[in-house]
Design a protein around this nucleic acid. Structure first.
Lengths: 187, 187
DNA sequence: TCCCCATGGCTAATGTTGTTAGCTAAAAGC
DNA sequence: GCTTTTAGCTAACAACATTAGCCATGGGGA
């Protein structure tokens, strides 16, 4: 019985990668165990179960998304920052649909939940973009929600193949960035 | 053995209602059968299985959404139409989170799939709103995708309790409608 | 160096859920 | 009234998540 040398982080990382490959809905404990060269019940030594695994994948994903967006925005402001953030977000969702899907519908257990921390961090990356615009304080929260809805909606619709008809999707996304930029500058 | 008098439509309607009650993830064939006063395997006389049931619920939901939005828009144009459509859409998602959730990630099997027909119909309701603005033809598809992303993103984020912090959510949504209206009028 | 014990792996077993097979009685058509 | 279709049933099976309980590994202390 040679040891596999697993730990929670390795299990979560493999779970996230597998979710991206086969889709979150097809991520099964048995499949993940097989991928890790281990029998299914062994996973329970590292994660609490499927719900806990999903939570941890979501936390990982939100942290990675925050890094990706934050990194992309570095050195830019205004329209350039907005475009960089939006593109980085969409790229992340399209490259990692499984782990991003894990973030939908999970709620933090409290303000100290790592999930909540990662969520605030990724929100902060978007909030930084808004500092490049001249937005009155009471409007900032609304603008943030608008940006988030726009990016989340577009990326998830595309990931789910929700855009059926002809027009080019990349072009639509660039159009959408311009639309948001014009609106924010006009405030 | 008295007959229950079921048919596919009744099963799908009950499934949609149950999904709204307990959440799509908790919609189980056994629970639905119990709700209908029937044993689980009997459901398979009316629907092909869980995937088929989900598809049919999605089709129902898209049709209902199209009706709700189309009805709300009647007699309005421009900003009023946009606001009516957006509010009707969000109300539908919040009142029927289960059946709306069923629409996410399902793909039509072809252009004649009832799912595709219902999808085009609900899209048409949004497209009608855009006719009240002066938008150049090549921009219409992009604007449509923008509207859809905005409404879908906002409604699903709210349904998943994705908006944590303080600001009032209804107020944010109204703000978002104004934002979109200003942007569309400025084209 | 040797022992010990915490721990990560295993097998076996259980409960839940989706699904199929095959039977039977109720309805519907002639 | 007889036949045919069919909607319901029971029984059974397969996949999956999870728990219980066993045992070997391997690191830390005597």
């Amino acid at each position: 019985m040679p040891r596999a040398g697993l730990d929670p982080a390795a299990v979560v990382a493999a779970g996230a990668a597998l979710a991206d490959e086969v889709g979150l809905a097809n991520l099964t404990m048995g499949l993940l165990a097989e991928r890790l060269g281990v029998r299914t019940p062994s996973l329970y030594k590292h994660v609490g179960g499927q719900e806990d695994l999903n939570r941890r994948i979501a936390t990982l994903a939100l942290g990675e998304a925050a890094d990706a967006i934050g990194g992309a925005v570095q050195g830019y402001a205004g329209r350039d920052a907005l475009a960089a953030a939006a593109r980085a977000f969409r790229a992340f969702v399209l490259e990692h649909p499984g782990r991003y899907g894990a973030t939908i519908g999970v709620e933090p257990h409290g303000p100290d939940d790592p999930l909540a921390v990662a969520g605030r961090r990724s929100l902060g990356a978007f909030r930084a973009v808004l500092r490049g615009y001249d937005i009155a304080e009471p409007d900032v929260d609304h603008a943030l929600r608008m940006l988030r809805s726009l990016c989340h909606g577009f990326a998830t619709l595309q990931a789910a193949n929700g855009f059926q008809w002809s027009a080019d999707i990349d072009e639509s996304f660039e159009w959408l960035i311009s639309f948001a930029d014009r609106g924010l500058r006009a405030m």
